[in-house]
Design a binder for these strands. Structure first.
Lengths: 213, 213
DNA sequence: TGTACATCAGTGAACGCGCGTTCACTGATGTAC
DNA sequence: TGTACATCAGTGAACGCGCGTTCACTGATGTAC
C-alpha cells in the first residue's frame, strides 16, 4: 500500500489543535529553506505539505505574512543560539570572538536560505511606528549583534586589541561576515579563499587584534 | 483634457518598431527599482507602464525572464562604468582604489534596488553549462571585479601596500563593500558609522595599505 | 452505564484576482507598378 | 499621380493556472446528566 502525504496525517485530538501550528511552521520553514524565496511560502503550498486544507491555517495564523514573520523569528533565535553556543566553547577572548564569527559563517553556509531571510526583509526601511508584535523580533536581532560587540570589548579589556571603537569594529566585522556569507552563497564558483583565511582577515584585521590567540 | 498614460503613446512608424524594446526595458527597470523585487516585473505591469498591450512584448523578448536578464545586464554595465569613471578621476594609486570603492558604495546607496539585483540572482548556484547568451553578463561581472584587483595591484606595484595576495585582498574588500552596502540599505536605522570611516576601514585595513594618500 | 449535546478540528466549494502565454485579427504605413 | 498590396506594429479576447480569503458545513470527541 502506498502511503501518501495526505493519508499520513490524522486529525489532532481535542485540545491538541495547537499542534497543527507547529506543523504548519515546520512545513513553511522547509519550503522557505528549499526554495530560498519567501514567495514560495503560500498558504496552499504549506497546506499541501502538511496534508491539510488551506483554510485550516487560519485557525492558527491571521494571514500569510504572519507565517513568514514566525519563521524569521525562529530563524533569528536559532542564529543567536548557535553563535552564543560557539562563543561559550572557548575561554580566551580572541578565541571566543573567532568562534562566534566562525559559527556565524557556518550557519550561513549550512543553511544559506535560512540565513538569507534574516536580513532580507524590508522591515526597517520605512520608519514604521514601533510595532509591539515585532518588538521581540527586533530584540532578537539586537541580541545577536550584542554578542559580537561584547566579544570585541572583551578582547579590548584583556589588552588584546588596540581598538578605540569596539562598536564600530563590531559593525565592520558584521558587514564583513555578512558580505562573505551572502556572496559565497550566491557565487559558489568564484575562487573563494578558505574560510579560515577570511575569518582571520575580517576578525583580526578589523577588530585590531594585536596578539594571535 | 486629461492626458493618460495610454493616450500619450503613439504607435511607432514602420522600421522603428525596435524603439519599443527600449521603452519596455526602461519601464521594466523603473518597476524593478521602485519595488526592489524582481517579481514585480510582470509582463502585464510592464505593458501597463509603457502603454501597450501585454502580448506586444513578445515581439521583443521571448519571455519574462529575458527582460529581467536584460535589466541586470544593463545594471552591470552601469555599475562597472561608474566605478571605472571614478577611478579615472585620480592619479595616485591609493586614491584611485579609494575612489573606485567609494563609487561602489555610492552606486549601492543611490540606487539600492539596482545594486541589489546585481548579486541577487541564483545564476551560478547550479553548475549550469556555459550558456553563450549569458557569457556577456558573466564577463561584465568579471570586469567589475577586475577593476578592483588591478587597483590593489597598482598600490602594491607602487610600494604603497604590503599585500602578498592582491587577489585575496580584492576579494576581502569586495565582500566588505558588499556587506556594508546591503546591510546599510536593509537596516537604515542602525547607527552606521560615516561612509568615509567604513571605506578607510575596509580599504586601508584589508588591502594592507601602508601609506595614507 | 447510556445518551443527548456542545465543542472542537478541520473541510470543500467558491469568490475574484493577476499572471504568462496563445491566437486570430486589424489598421496604418510604405512601396511597386 | 493613383492605387493595389505586402508588411509592420501592434490589439483584444481567451486559455488555464495558483493564489489569498470567505463561508457554510461536517463529523469525531469529549462531557453533563
Amino acid at each position: 500500500m502506498v502511503v501518501t502525504e495526505t493519508m499520513t496525517r490524522e486529525r489532532n485530538r481535542r485540545g491538541e489543535g495547537g499542534r497543527l501550528r507547529a506543523e504548519i511552521l515546520h512545513a513553511a520553514t522547509a519550503l522557505l529553506e528549499e526554495t530560498g524565496s519567501e514567495q514560495s511560502v503560500t498558504l496552499r503550498a504549506v497546506a499541501r505539505t502538511v496534508g491539510i486544507s488551506a483554510p485550516s491555517i487560519y485557525a492558527h495564523f491571521p494571514d500569510r505574512e504572519a507565517i513568514v514573520d514566525a519563521i524569521i523569528d525562529d530563524a533569528f533565535t536559532d542564529f543567536r543560539d548557535a553563535i552564543a553556543a560557539a562563543i561559550d566553547t572557548e575561554q580566551q577572548p580572541v578565541r571566543r570572538l573567532l568562534a562566534g564569527c566562525s559559527a556565524y559563517l557556518r550557519f550561513a553556509e549550512d543553511r544559506p536560505n535560512r540565513y538569507r531571510i534574516l536580513f532580507d526583509r524590508r522591515d526597517l526601511i520605512e520608519d514604521c511606528p514601533p510595532d509591539p508584535d515585532r518588538l521581540a523580533l527586533t530584540e532578537s536581532r539586537t541580541e545577536s549583534f550584542a554578542l559580537l560587540v561584547t566579544s570585541v570589548q572583551a578582547c579590548l579589556d584583556a589588552g588584546l586589541s588596540t581598538s578605540t571603537d569596539p562598536f564600530g569594529d563590531a559593525t565592520a566585522i558584521w558587514t564583513g561576515l555578512h558580505g562573505y556569507a551572502t556572496l559565497h552563497a550566491r557565487l559558489p564558483s568564484f575562487p573563494w579563499p578558505p574560510e579560515a583565511d577570511t575569518l582571520d582577515r575580517i576578525v583580526l584585521g578589523l577588530a585590531h587584534i594585536t596578539e594571535e590567540p
